[in-house]
Amino acid sequence: MERTLTTLTGSSHAALVDQDVAHIGRVMRPSLQGDLGGPILPVTYWRKRLYHLLDTGNLSHAQLCAVDSLLLQLDQFETEPPPVWIAPAAATAAPFQPLQVAAGRRI
Rank of each mutant, 00 (worst) to 15 (best):
E2D: 12
D18E: 11
L8N: 06
W46V: 01
H61T: 08
M28Q: 03
F77D: 00
T44R: 11
L50T: 01
S12F: 04
G25K: 01
A15I: 07
L99S: 13
Q76V: 08
M1D: 14
P30I: 02
E80R: 09
I40S: 12
P42D: 07
D55F: 11
P83K: 13
T4F: 15
L36W: 07
G57H: 06
T92A: 09
A15Q: 15
A90D: 08
A87I: 03
V101T: 08
T92Q: 14
S11N: 07
L41M: 11
P98S: 08
E2I: 11
Q97N: 06
R29F: 00
T7W: 08
P39N: 09
H13E: 07
G10K: 13
P88W: 09
L36T: 12
H23P: 00
P39Y: 09
M1A: 15
T79H: 06
T9S: 15
Y45L: 06
H13L: 09
G37R: 13
A90R: 09
I107D: 11
Q19A: 11
A102D: 07
R3P: 06
L50K: 00
R106P: 01
E80W: 04
P39Q: 12
W46Q: 02
M28A: 03
L64V: 04
Q97L: 13
W46N: 02
L59Y: 01
W46F: 15
F77L: 03
S11D: 12
E78N: 09
R106Y: 12
V84P: 01
G25I: 00
R29G: 00
T79V: 11
L36A: 14
R29W: 02
T44H: 03
L99I: 07
T7E: 15
G104E: 06
E2N: 09
A87G: 04
A91H: 03
T79C: 05
T92N: 08
G38M: 07
F96D: 12
A103F: 09
S60W: 03
H23R: 15
H23G: 13
D75F: 07
A102Y: 14
E2T: 09
H13C: 02
T4M: 14
R106D: 07
S31R: 02
V101G: 08
F96R: 11
R47E: 04
L16H: 07
S60C: 05
L99C: 06
A15N: 08
S31Q: 04
V17Y: 01
D20M: 10
L8P: 00
D68P: 01
G57F: 07
L70T: 04
S60P: 02
A93E: 09
E80I: 08
D18C: 03
P98C: 08
I107T: 10
T79E: 07
R29L: 11
L99T: 12
Q73E: 15
G25C: 02
N58Y: 07
L70K: 02
N58K: 11
A15F: 10
V17W: 00
P95E: 15
L59C: 01
